[in-house]
Design a protein around this nucleic acid. Structure first.
Length: 224
DNA sequence: CTTTGATCATGT
DNA sequence: ACATGATCAAAG
Protein backbone atom coordinates (compact mmCIF):
# COMPACT_ATOMS: atom_id res chain seq x y z
CA UNK A 1 0.00 0.00 0.00
CA UNK A 2 1.05 3.56 -0.63
CA UNK A 3 1.83 6.00 2.09
CA UNK A 4 -1.44 7.57 3.19
CA UNK A 5 -1.91 11.29 2.63
CA UNK A 6 -2.42 13.50 5.67
CA UNK A 7 -6.03 13.57 6.86
CA UNK A 8 -7.72 16.82 5.84
CA UNK A 9 -10.13 16.94 8.75
CA UNK A 10 -10.50 15.69 12.28
CA UNK A 11 -13.37 13.42 11.27
CA UNK A 12 -11.25 11.87 8.56
CA UNK A 13 -8.51 11.20 11.09
CA UNK A 14 -10.96 9.67 13.55
CA UNK A 15 -12.35 7.49 10.79
CA UNK A 16 -8.88 6.12 10.14
CA UNK A 17 -8.41 5.55 13.86
CA UNK A 18 -11.62 3.51 14.01
CA UNK A 19 -10.46 1.42 11.08
CA UNK A 20 -7.30 0.26 12.82
CA UNK A 21 -8.77 -0.36 16.28
CA UNK A 22 -8.47 -4.03 17.17
CA UNK A 23 -5.65 -4.76 14.74
CA UNK A 24 -2.22 -5.79 15.91
CA UNK A 25 0.84 -3.74 15.09
CA UNK A 26 2.11 -6.64 13.01
CA UNK A 27 -1.07 -6.80 10.93
CA UNK A 28 -0.89 -3.10 10.29
CA UNK A 29 2.79 -3.22 9.41
CA UNK A 30 2.19 -6.06 6.94
CA UNK A 31 -0.61 -4.16 5.21
CA UNK A 32 1.63 -1.17 4.62
CA UNK A 33 4.88 -3.04 4.02
CA UNK A 34 6.36 -1.46 7.09
CA UNK A 35 9.16 -3.29 8.86
CA UNK A 36 8.40 -5.37 11.95
CA UNK A 37 11.17 -5.78 14.51
CA UNK A 38 11.24 -8.87 16.76
CA UNK A 39 11.72 -6.69 19.82
CA UNK A 40 12.07 -3.02 20.70
CA UNK A 41 15.53 -3.25 22.26
CA UNK A 42 16.88 -1.14 19.45
CA UNK A 43 13.88 0.38 17.70
CA UNK A 44 12.11 1.81 20.67
CA UNK A 45 10.19 4.30 18.58
CA UNK A 46 8.75 1.73 16.19
CA UNK A 47 5.12 1.75 17.40
CA UNK A 48 4.89 5.51 17.07
CA UNK A 49 6.59 5.58 13.70
CA UNK A 50 4.30 2.89 12.32
CA UNK A 51 1.17 4.67 13.49
CA UNK A 52 2.40 8.01 12.18
CA UNK A 53 2.94 6.43 8.80
CA UNK A 54 -0.38 4.64 8.62
CA UNK A 55 -2.41 7.62 9.77
CA UNK A 56 -0.64 10.02 7.43
CA UNK A 57 1.27 12.12 9.94
CA UNK A 58 4.02 14.32 8.60
CA UNK A 59 7.22 12.33 9.04
CA UNK A 60 9.87 13.40 11.48
CA UNK A 61 9.24 17.10 11.37
CA UNK A 62 10.15 19.21 14.34
CA UNK A 63 8.19 22.11 15.77
CA UNK A 64 4.83 21.37 14.19
CA UNK A 65 2.13 18.92 15.32
CA UNK A 66 2.07 15.48 13.74
CA UNK A 67 -1.09 16.41 11.89
CA UNK A 68 -0.12 19.95 11.05
CA UNK A 69 -3.20 20.90 9.08
CA UNK A 70 -5.59 20.05 11.90
CA UNK A 71 -3.23 20.80 14.80
CA UNK A 72 -3.21 17.38 16.43
CA UNK A 73 -0.34 15.55 18.12
CA UNK A 74 -0.23 11.74 18.02
CA UNK A 75 0.85 9.80 21.11
CA UNK A 76 0.83 6.05 21.47
CA UNK A 77 0.11 4.88 25.01
CA UNK A 78 1.43 1.45 26.03
CA UNK A 79 -0.98 -0.31 28.41
CA UNK A 80 -0.72 -3.31 30.70
CA UNK A 81 -3.24 -6.19 30.77
CA UNK A 82 -5.10 -4.23 33.43
CA UNK A 83 -5.30 -1.15 31.25
CA UNK A 84 -2.74 0.95 33.06
CA UNK A 85 -0.03 2.96 31.29
CA UNK A 86 3.27 1.07 31.32
CA UNK A 87 5.47 4.04 30.56
CA UNK A 88 5.63 7.77 31.10
CA UNK A 89 4.82 9.84 28.02
CA UNK A 90 7.53 11.99 26.50
CA UNK A 91 6.35 15.50 25.72
CA UNK A 92 9.20 17.75 24.64
CA UNK A 93 12.75 18.93 25.20
CA UNK A 94 13.37 21.02 28.30
CA UNK A 95 14.87 24.42 27.48
CA UNK A 96 17.97 24.99 29.62
CA UNK A 97 19.15 28.40 28.38
CA UNK A 98 17.59 31.62 27.08
CA UNK A 99 14.65 31.30 29.42
CA UNK A 100 14.02 35.00 29.83
CA UNK A 101 10.53 35.85 28.69
CA UNK A 102 9.52 32.21 28.40
CA UNK A 103 6.05 31.59 29.77
CA UNK A 104 3.74 28.61 30.16
CA UNK A 105 1.56 30.02 27.41
CA UNK A 106 4.45 30.16 24.98
CA UNK A 107 6.02 26.88 26.11
CA UNK A 108 6.48 23.82 23.95
CA UNK A 109 4.64 21.70 26.51
CA UNK A 110 1.52 23.85 26.31
CA UNK A 111 1.60 23.75 22.52
CA UNK A 112 2.27 20.02 22.24
CA UNK A 113 -0.50 19.08 24.64
CA UNK A 114 -3.07 21.48 23.23
CA UNK A 115 -4.73 18.70 21.25
CA UNK A 116 -3.61 15.08 21.45
CA UNK A 117 -4.76 11.90 19.73
CA UNK A 118 -4.10 9.13 22.24
CA UNK A 119 -3.70 5.68 20.75
CA UNK A 120 -3.73 3.00 23.45
CA UNK A 121 -1.80 -0.17 22.67
CA UNK A 122 -1.90 -3.38 24.68
CA UNK A 123 1.84 -3.53 25.11
CA UNK A 124 2.69 -5.79 28.05
CA UNK A 125 6.32 -6.76 27.78
CA UNK A 126 5.64 -10.44 27.32
CA UNK A 127 3.75 -9.68 24.11
CA UNK A 128 6.02 -9.46 21.05
CA UNK A 129 5.69 -6.06 19.36
CA UNK A 130 3.92 -7.46 16.28
CA UNK A 131 1.26 -9.07 18.49
CA UNK A 132 0.43 -5.92 20.42
CA UNK A 133 -3.16 -4.82 19.85
CA UNK A 134 -4.22 -1.30 18.96
CA UNK A 135 -7.04 0.04 21.07
CA UNK A 136 -9.62 2.74 20.55
CA UNK A 137 -7.89 6.03 19.89
CA UNK A 138 -9.44 9.24 21.14
CA UNK A 139 -8.86 12.97 21.15
CA UNK A 140 -8.00 14.86 24.32
CA UNK A 141 -7.49 18.44 25.37
CA UNK A 142 -6.41 19.35 28.92
CA UNK A 143 -9.30 20.48 31.13
CA UNK A 144 -8.77 23.40 33.48
CA UNK A 145 -7.52 21.22 36.34
CA UNK A 146 -5.13 19.30 34.14
CA UNK A 147 -3.79 22.48 32.63
CA UNK A 148 -3.30 23.99 36.09
CA UNK A 149 -1.36 20.92 37.19
CA UNK A 150 0.81 20.95 34.10
CA UNK A 151 1.40 24.65 34.38
CA UNK A 152 2.44 24.44 38.02
CA UNK A 153 4.91 21.63 37.33
CA UNK A 154 6.28 23.46 34.33
CA UNK A 155 6.68 26.75 36.16
CA UNK A 156 8.30 25.23 39.25
CA UNK A 157 10.86 23.22 37.34
CA UNK A 158 11.62 25.89 34.74
CA UNK A 159 12.18 28.34 37.60
CA UNK A 160 14.80 26.03 39.10
CA UNK A 161 16.54 25.86 35.75
CA UNK A 162 16.34 29.62 35.32
CA UNK A 163 18.18 30.21 38.59
CA UNK A 164 20.93 27.75 37.74
CA UNK A 165 19.76 24.77 39.75
CA UNK A 166 19.29 22.29 36.91
CA UNK A 167 21.54 19.80 38.67
CA UNK A 168 19.07 19.63 41.55
CA UNK A 169 16.32 18.42 39.23
CA UNK A 170 15.44 14.73 39.20
CA UNK A 171 12.51 12.61 38.17
CA UNK A 172 11.09 12.93 41.66
CA UNK A 173 9.88 16.47 41.06
CA UNK A 174 6.55 17.35 39.54
CA UNK A 175 3.07 16.23 40.51
CA UNK A 176 1.97 15.13 37.03
CA UNK A 177 4.91 16.04 34.80
CA UNK A 178 8.54 15.30 35.52
CA UNK A 179 11.91 16.10 33.97
CA UNK A 180 14.22 13.22 33.09
CA UNK A 181 17.27 12.70 30.87
CA UNK A 182 16.60 12.59 27.14
CA UNK A 183 19.72 11.72 25.22
CA UNK A 184 21.53 9.02 23.30
CA UNK A 185 23.43 8.16 26.50
CA UNK A 186 24.58 9.63 29.79
CA UNK A 187 27.70 11.19 28.28
CA UNK A 188 25.87 13.61 26.02
CA UNK A 189 26.17 17.18 27.27
CA UNK A 190 24.44 20.43 26.45
CA UNK A 191 24.53 24.00 27.75
CA UNK A 192 22.59 25.07 30.80
CA UNK A 193 22.59 27.92 33.29
CA UNK A 194 24.98 27.19 36.19
CA UNK A 195 24.81 28.12 39.89
CA UNK A 196 27.06 31.15 39.29
CA UNK A 197 24.98 32.38 36.41
CA UNK A 198 27.34 31.28 33.68
CA UNK A 199 26.96 28.37 31.30
CA UNK A 200 27.63 24.82 32.44
CA UNK A 201 27.37 21.49 30.67
CA UNK A 202 24.64 19.08 31.65
CA UNK A 203 22.56 16.20 30.35
CA UNK A 204 19.81 17.11 27.90
CA UNK A 205 16.42 16.69 29.56
CA UNK A 206 12.84 16.11 28.49
CA UNK A 207 9.41 16.64 30.00
CA UNK A 208 7.47 13.44 30.64
CA UNK A 209 3.86 12.94 31.73
CA UNK A 210 3.68 10.64 34.72
CA UNK A 211 1.63 7.46 34.36
CA UNK A 212 -0.95 8.52 36.95
CA UNK A 213 -1.74 11.54 34.81
CA UNK A 214 -2.24 9.56 31.61
CA UNK A 215 -4.18 6.94 33.53
CA UNK A 216 -6.57 9.68 34.60
CA UNK A 217 -6.93 10.83 31.02
CA UNK A 218 -7.94 7.28 30.13
CA UNK A 219 -10.33 7.01 33.03
CA UNK A 220 -12.01 10.31 32.25
CA UNK A 221 -12.46 9.30 28.64
CA UNK A 222 -13.68 5.75 29.01
CA UNK A 223 -15.92 6.30 32.01
CA UNK A 224 -17.59 9.58 31.09
C1' DC B 1 24.37 17.24 15.97
C1' DT B 2 19.58 17.66 17.60
C1' DT B 3 14.79 16.33 17.89
C1' DT B 4 11.17 12.90 17.69
C1' DG B 5 9.57 8.47 18.19
C1' DA B 6 9.69 6.10 22.61
C1' DT B 7 11.11 1.76 25.72
C1' DC B 8 14.77 -0.52 28.37
C1' DA B 9 16.80 -1.80 32.67
C1' DT B 10 18.17 -1.24 37.15
C1' DG B 11 17.56 0.33 41.88
C1' DT B 12 14.41 0.94 45.58
C1' DA C 1 5.86 -3.46 41.34
C1' DC C 2 7.08 0.73 39.97
C1' DA C 3 9.62 4.83 38.94
C1' DT C 4 13.92 7.03 37.65
C1' DG C 5 17.85 7.27 34.96
C1' DA C 6 19.78 5.37 30.70
C1' DT C 7 19.45 4.31 26.09
C1' DC C 8 18.52 3.49 20.67
C1' DA C 9 17.27 4.40 15.57
C1' DA C 10 15.43 7.45 12.10
C1' DA C 11 15.05 11.79 10.12
C1' DG C 12 16.15 16.62 9.34
Amino acid sequence: MLKPAPPTSISELLQRVETIAGLTLGELAAQYHFKSPDDLLREKGWPGQLLEYVLGASAGSKPVPDFEHIGIELKTLPLSYTGKPLETTYVSVVPLTNLTGLTWQSSSVKKKLNHVLWLPILAERDIPPINRTIGTGFLWQPDSLQEAQLRRDWEEQIELIAVGRVNEISGHLGEVMQIRPKAANSKVLTDAIGPEGGLIKTLPRGFYLKTQFTQNILKNHFSC
